[in-house]
């Protein structure tokens, strides 16, 4: 699903690589944590997968496509198979919960009847049934992130990238978000989640990839935030 071979990313000439010869394989349907300090390269890795940035050297395949060689015009269709959520939710304040989720379908030209059918199902999946008409400022942080997740998965992506999705939330709310992400994962979506949240990682017993200064220093199939010790 995602294969990195010796991928290096250097933002500015002469700067320290943000990613340094990273090799990584994330199979279909896996739930994978990316952990590490700020600036360790987690977000860079996610933005390479999404093809927001070019890789500097190495090879990377996402959804079977060589992303270094992907032409510009193919990017939109490629991204429709990848969902993204962020620490700051990025909701549209003037739209309701329903409209925020529907937006992701409208802008890729999905027909109205598909939107009317799909959005309620997805809101149900993330636990927001009955709150369709609220606007983001009427929701708690956890609920806002659920809207963001609903929007990210409403087009049934094969991969969900989550960049510090619980960074702004308290521990109990974070657990709720984690449960939603696991539910999404159980529908077959590959989930890659960059996080600082020790508690969540330790509890989840999923694969953990740790990055330090752009290098993979640990990769455990069922790990803890700080390693076995």
């Amino acid at each position: 699903m995602i294969t990195f071979q010796n991928v290096t990313k250097i933002y500015a000439r002469g700067a320290r690589p943000a990613l340094d010869a990273v090799s990584l394989e994330i199979p279909r349907g896996q739930f994978c944590f990316l952990v590490g300090a700020s600036g360790s390269g987690k977000s860079t890795l996610l933005s390479l997968v999404l093809r927001e940035e070019h890789i500097t050297s190495g090879q990377a395949f996402v959804l079977g496509q060589d992303i270094a060689k992907m032409p510009q015009r193919r990017i939109p269709r490629f991204r429709r198979q990848i969902g993204s959520v962020f620490q700051d939710f990025r909701l549209l304040e003037r739209k309701t919960v329903f409209q925020n989720v529907a937006f992701a379908m409208q802008v890729i030209g999905r027909p109205r009847h598909a939107i009317m059918r799909t959005v309620p199902d997805v809101l149900d999946l993330v636990g927001l049934a009955g709150k369709e008409k609220r606007t983001p400022h009427e929701l708690s942080g956890g609920e806002q992130q659920r809207v963001a997740i609903a929007r990210a998965v409403v087009n049934r992506p094969q991969i969900l990238l989550a960049d510090e999705p619980t960074g702004n939330l308290d521990p109990r709310t974070s657990e709720g978000i984690m449960a939603v992400l696991e539910r999404v994962n159980q529908t077959g979506t590959t989930v890659v989640m960059a996080t600082h949240d020790v508690g969540l990682v330790d509890q989840a017993q999923q694969r953990v990839v740790e990055l330090v200064e752009g290098r993979v220093v640990r990769d455990e199939a069922s790990g803890y935030y700080g390693g076995e010790g």
Binding site: L50, R73, I75, P76, R77, F78, R79, R80, Q81, I82, G83, S84, R90, L92, F103, A104, V107, I108, R151, A152, N155
Partner: peptide
């Protein structure tokens, strides 16, 4: 958001 969810240019 449009770019993220794959809206065309």
């Amino acid at each position: 958001i449009m770019r993220l969810v794959g809206a065309s240019n």
